[in-house]
Design a protein around this nucleic acid. Structure first.
Lengths: 203, 203, 203, 203
DNA sequence: GATGAATGAGCTTTCATTCAT
DNA sequence: GATGAATGAAAGCTCATTCAT
C-alpha cells in the first residue's frame, strides 16, 4: 500500500465515503466491517471515526449525501423553470423529463441505490429510518411544491391533493428503481407507463 | 420463567421455525440473534442447535420450507389438470389463475416474503445463494414443463423457448411480490398486467 | 442401529467401559464426548449417567478397572508362590518373570495404556490424580511386600529400603510403557536392561 | 485492574507467547482457556487474536517457535564446523556434544517440552500433526545432511542410510526427553548410553 | 428401565470503538 | 494529525448433565 498521503479533510472524507459506498454495496450494512472500509480508503480505522462518529452515522451520511446529490442534479437541470412552462402540456413534459432523467441516472448510482434498499432492512434503527424517510420526503416536497405552483398559476388542475400526487410519483420512482436493481427495467416499458401516469396525475 | 413445556421434536421444530420467521422478518438475518429466536420460541439457545446446525442453516430451511410449501399449495390446486385444458383459452386461464392464486397468498406469506428479500442481501453466502436460486428454479421448471406439455399437445404455440417464458413468468411474480411488500400492490392493476402478459406469453 | 437390547446392568456397564476406552484412546479425555461414547456403546447419553455419575468418574473407573485387572492377571499367575522360592536366584527370576509378563501384556492393553498417559495431562483434577497415584501405589505395595517377605525370610538381602526398590521397579515399568507407546520398545533391549536392574535391586 | 501498559507489537507478542507457554504447560491444550492466557499476559482476550488467529494457531506457533529456537541454539554452537573435523573420532565427538548440549538444555525448555508431549494427544488436528512432524523432520534433516557430508568426505563410513541413522538419533532424543519429563533422567546413564549409541551409528 | 427433551454454563471468536502517544 | 494498542460487549456454538414421562 502506498504511504497514506496527507489529504485535506474534505477530500479524505470523500475518499472514505466512496470506499464505504463500495464496501457496503458489495455485501450489506451488517457484514461490511469498518476495517474493510478503512482498508479500501487506504486509511486506518480510527480515521473513519475522525469524520464519522459511528458506523451508523457513516451509513446515514451516505444516504443523505446520495439523496442530496441526486436532488441537486435534479434542480440544476431546472426542468421547472416556470417562465417556460405556460401550458399543461409543457408542465406534463417537465414532469416526464424530470423523472426520466432520474431513471437515466440509475446506472450511475447503482451502488448507492443498492445501499438504499439495504437501508430498508435496517429501519429498526430509528436514525436510519428517519434519514430514509427524509430523503423520500425531500423529493416528495419538491414535486408537491411544483404541483402547487402549477395549480396556483392555473396552468394545471389537480383532482387530488398535490401531496397525494407527489407521493404517488415517489412510489413510481421507487418501483422503477427496484425493477432496475433486479434487472427487470426496460426503458421502453417505463416510458409508456410514465406517459400514462402523467396523464393520470395531471389530467 | 414459565415452566418449559416438553414438546415432541416435530412440534418443537415447527415452533422454532415459526419464531424464527417472525424474528427474522422483524429485522434481518444479521440483526436477529439466535437468542431472540430462542426466547420467542420459549426455549434456550441450544435447543435451536438441536434442530438446526447453524444460524445459516436455520435461515436456509425457512427459505426451503416456504418455497416448498407455496409450491405445494400450487400443485394441490392443480390448475393444470390437463384433461380439462383443451384449448388455448383454457390454457391461458390456467396460467392466469395459477399466478393470481400466488398473488392472493402473498398476504398470508408476508413474513416469509420479507425473508426472501433479505436473503438477496446475503447472497455472498454461497449456501444461501443456492437455496434462493433453487427455489426460483423450482417454480420455473414447473411452468416450463407445463408450457412444454401444452405445446407438445398442440394446445398452444410458443414463440419463444418454454424456458425463456417460464423465467419471464418468475420475473413477473418477483416483481409483483416486491410491489406488494413495498405497499404498491394494486390487485386491479396486476390483473390487467397479468392479462396482457399472458397474451404475450401464449400468443 | 439395532434396537438396543435390554442387557443386565453388569454387562451394559462393561459395554460402556469398553466403548469409552476406545473413544478416549482415539483422541483424549477432553475431546472425547459423552455422546460419542454413548453412540459407540449403542446406548443413549443418560444411560452413561445411570452407571457413572460424571465423565470424570467414568474416566477414573477406566483407570481403576485397568489397574485392578492387570494387577489381577499378575496375582493369578502367582510368580511369588513362596513355597517355590527358596533362594535368591529363584527370587530374582520371579521378579523378572513378573515384569516381563507385564511387558508382554502391553500390546493387549495398548488403548488402556494410552489413557493412562492422557491421565497425566489431567492431574489438575485431584480425583484423577488420586486414582493415578493409587494405581501406581498398588503395584508398588505389591512389590514392596514381596521384597519385605523375601528379606524377612532371609532369602534376599536388600541394600535399600523395600519401598525405594519397589518404586524403582514401578519407574522401570512406566519407562518401558512409554517406549512401547512411542514405538521404541525392543524386547531384546528390555530383557537385557531388566536383567541388569534385577541384579541391582537384589544384589 | 492494573493500568494496561502499552507495548510495541513485537514485545506484546512475546509476552503472550510466554504466558501461553506457561498456561498450556500447567494443564493442557484443551483445558487452558484463551482467557487464562490473556489474564496471564495481562491483556484481554481479543489481544490474543490480534496476534494469533485462533487458539490452535497459537499452539502451533509455540511448537514452531520452540523447534526453531532450539534448532538455532544448535546451529550457533556449530558442532559440525567441518574444518575442525578431520577424523572419525572428531566426528563422533561432535555428534555426542551436539546431543548432550540438547539434553543439557532440557531443563531450560521444560515447559516447552511438556507442550510438545501434549501435542501428541492432539494429532487428530491435522495442522498440529503437521507442525509436530515438521519439527522432528528438521532435526532429522540436519543430522542426515551432516552424516552425508561426513561420509562423502570419507571421514566416516555408514552401515545404514544416513536417513535411517538420523531418525534413530531423533528417537534417542525423544526418548531422553520423555525420561526427563517423567523424572527418570540421569545424566550419567544417558552419557553412557549416548556413547554406546554413537559407536553404533558411526562404527 | 430407558429415553427424548431441555438447559446451564462456558468457550472461542468478532467487531465497533476508544485512547495514549 | 495519525496511528498502533487495547478493550467492552456480545454472538454463535458446544457439551456435560438433568428430568419428566
Amino acid at each position: 500500500m502506498l504511504k497514506p498521503k496527507r489529504l485535506p479533510a474534505e477530500k479524505r472524507k470523500r475518499v472514505i465515503i466512496r470506499a464505504a459506498i463500495e464496501v457496503f454495496s458489495e455485501s450489506n450494512y451488517r457484514v461490511a466491517k469498518i476495517s474493510d472500509i478503512a482498508a479500501r480508503a487506504g486509511v486506518t480505522d480510527p480515521m473513519i471515526y475522525k469524520f464519522f462518529s459511528s458506523k451508523s452515522i457513516l451509513f446515514q451520511e451516505i444516504l443523505k449525501k446520495t439523496s442530496s446529490k441526486t436532488l441537486q442534479d435534479f434542480l440544476e437541470q431546472d426542468f421547472f423553470y416556470m417562465e417556460k412552462i405556460t401550458c399543461k402540456e409543457h408542465f406534463r413534459l417537465a414532469i416526464e423529463k424530470s423523472l426520466f432523467s432520474y431513471f437515466s441516472s440509475m446506472e450511475k448510482y447503482r451502488k448507492e441505490l443498492k445501499i438504499y434498499f439495504q437501508a430498508i432492512s435496517e429501519v429498526d434503527e430509528p436514525d436510519i429510518e428517519k434519514v430514509l424517510k427524509d430523503s423520500y420526503q425531500n423529493y416528495a416536497s419538491l414535486y408537491e411544491s411544483i404541483l402547487q405552483k402549477g395549480a396556483e398559476a392555473n396552468i394545471i388542475q389537480l383532482e387530488m391533493s398535490a401531496k397525494a400526487i407527489a407521493w404517488d410519483i415517489i412510489g413510481f420512482m421507487i418501483h422503477q428503481s427496484t425493477l432496475f436493481l433486479m434487472g427487470f427495467y426496460v426503458e421502453e416499458d417505463t416510458k409508456k407507463l410514465l406517459n400514462q401516469r402523467v396523464s393520470m396525475w395531471i389530467p
